[in-house]
Structures are given as C-alpha cells and as structure tokens.
Computed example of a mutant assay.
Amino acid sequence: MPGLWRRGTIFQYRVRVPADVATVLGRSHISRSLNTSSMRDARRALILTAYVLIATEM
C-alpha cells in the first residue's frame, strides 16, 4: 500500500504534500504513526489515518 512503511517494528503512514500546500504547512511530507506492528492492523489504520489527514490538514 502506498505510504505504508515500517520504522523499527511500528508501521508509519507518510504522504507527500502538494507544493502549494507545502509552502503553507512548511513541510513537504506528513508522517503519522499507526501504533501497530501488525500488517493487518496497519492496513486498517492507514485507511482511517489517510481520511483524517485529508479532512483536517490538507
């Protein structure tokens, strides 16, 4: 799944921010911990986290 990666044993979600939004936010990527080491749980958490990021930060 795009944006899903593992940092140590915990899965993370990372998404690139569009250039015009990046100038406002001051960063080119947004990363969030999914707080799980299970791939199955990470996939579920990724969907919810992506939705929340789109709704609140972008």
Rank of each mutant, 00 (worst) to 15 (best):
Met1Leu: 13
Met1Ala: 12
Pro2Ile: 11
Pro2Ser: 12
Gly3Glu: 03
Gly3Arg: 00
Trp5Cys: 07
Arg6Lys: 15
Arg6Ala: 06
Arg7Gln: 15
Arg7Asp: 13
Gly8Tyr: 09
Gly8Asp: 09
Thr9Asn: 13
Thr9Glu: 11
Ile10Cys: 02
Ile10Pro: 05
Ile10Trp: 04
Phe11Leu: 01
Gln12Thr: 09
Tyr13Asn: 02
Arg14Tyr: 03
Arg16Trp: 08
Arg16Cys: 07
Val17Lys: 04
Pro18Gln: 09
Ala19Asn: 14
Ala19Phe: 11
Ala19Met: 11
Val21Ala: 14
Ala22Ile: 10
Val24Asp: 08
Val24Arg: 14
Gly26Gln: 09
Gly26Thr: 05
Gly26Asp: 04
Gly26Phe: 01
Gly26Val: 04
Gly26Ala: 05
Gly26Lys: 10
Arg27Ser: 01
Arg27Lys: 15
Ser28Lys: 12
Ser28Glu: 13
Ser28Val: 13
His29Leu: 00
Ile30Gly: 01
Ile30His: 03
Ile30Phe: 03
Ser31Met: 07
Arg32Trp: 03
Arg32Phe: 06
Ser33Met: 05
Ser33Arg: 11
Leu34Asp: 01
Leu34Phe: 08
Leu34Met: 10
Asn35Phe: 05
Asn35Ile: 01
Thr36Asn: 04
Thr36Trp: 08
Thr36Cys: 10
Thr36Val: 12
Ser37Met: 01
Ser37Val: 02
Ser38Tyr: 12
Met39Asn: 06
Arg40Trp: 06
Arg40Ala: 13
Asp41Trp: 03
Ala42Asn: 04
Ala42Lys: 02
Arg43Asp: 09
Arg43Leu: 15
Arg43Ala: 11
Arg43Cys: 09
Arg44Ala: 10
Arg44His: 09
Ala45Arg: 11
Ala45Trp: 00
Ile47Ser: 06
Leu48Pro: 00
Thr49Val: 10
Thr49Pro: 00
Thr49Glu: 04
Thr49Leu: 05
Thr49Asn: 01
Tyr51Leu: 11
Tyr51His: 15
Val52Glu: 12
Leu53Phe: 08
Ile54Tyr: 05
Ile54Ala: 07
Ile54Trp: 08
Ile54His: 12
Ala55Ile: 06
Ala55Trp: 04
Glu57Tyr: 04
Glu57Ser: 03
Met58Trp: 06
